[in-house]
Amino acid sequence: MNKNKASLNPKKIIIWTFLFIGAVIMMTPIIFMFSASFKYNDQIYDLTLFTSDFTLDNYIYLLENTDFIVWLSNSLFISLFTTFCVLFFDSLVGYTLAKFQFNGQKIVFIAILSTLMIPTEMLVIPWYIIARDFGLLDTYLGLILPGIMTGFGVFLMKQFFEGVPDDYLEAARIDGVGEFTIFIRIALPLVTPALSALAIFTFLGNWTAFLWPLIVSSSAELFTVPVGLASFSGEFQSDWELIMTGAALATLPTLLVFLILQRYIIRGVVLGGLKG
């Protein structure tokens, strides 16, 4: 499209203004959430964003009186561990399906692809029964197990590995490099954009996951942030400024990561979205 840097025609200014208003509206919930988290109880019902006597009391109260730190670290641990597993296994399977010929290859691929059709909501009931029968209710393993491999990731990685030229891999084979080493050392580095896309989706998915953690975890020490946040309204008699503080704490980590890695994250999301 035609992009004249200097052109400042009125149409563009109008467009820009509308986009700016839209952006402000989009950010409003987040801004009010943070603003309320710094206010005293009797101030949160007025519309001013910043009060002169802002307070950290809510944060202190929350950290001292709830298990919020535990929930944050649970969420972090579960999301990171799951992401790591997904990256490893999904790319291993995707690589194998893309770069090897073997009997049953097609069936395996279609089978794994077909799991994309099955919604989590359908699986939680059987998962719950399995977890109960194997004593996994209310354990980290129970929380993590259903998510450590995904059909989506396998599909995504297979797409990308198909774009890796066979010559590279053959050259290594001739040099006598082991197959697993070829995968780790040669193939994986060639698909880092895909890996980072998968990592973003998996991490975000686990960080915000609610239904399964709600079902499988029962003691507060095992809650993830969303489950903890949902439960604490009942236990702490929902004071809005405290709930906003909790919501802010849940939002802060992803927000910070985004502000640092903005460009990569958007690129990753686009990549994952379009190829997946």
Binding site: R132, D133, G135, D138, L214, S218, S219, A220, G234, E235
Partner: peptide
């Protein structure tokens, strides 16, 4: 001494005791 939130408490007890835990 173990505690669960009210919302899930009832299910948890039923499920656990029926599994012998």
């Amino acid at each position: 001494h173990t505690n669960f939130p009210y919302a899930q408490y009832r299910t948890k007890v039923a499920a656990a005791v029926s599994a012998g835990e």
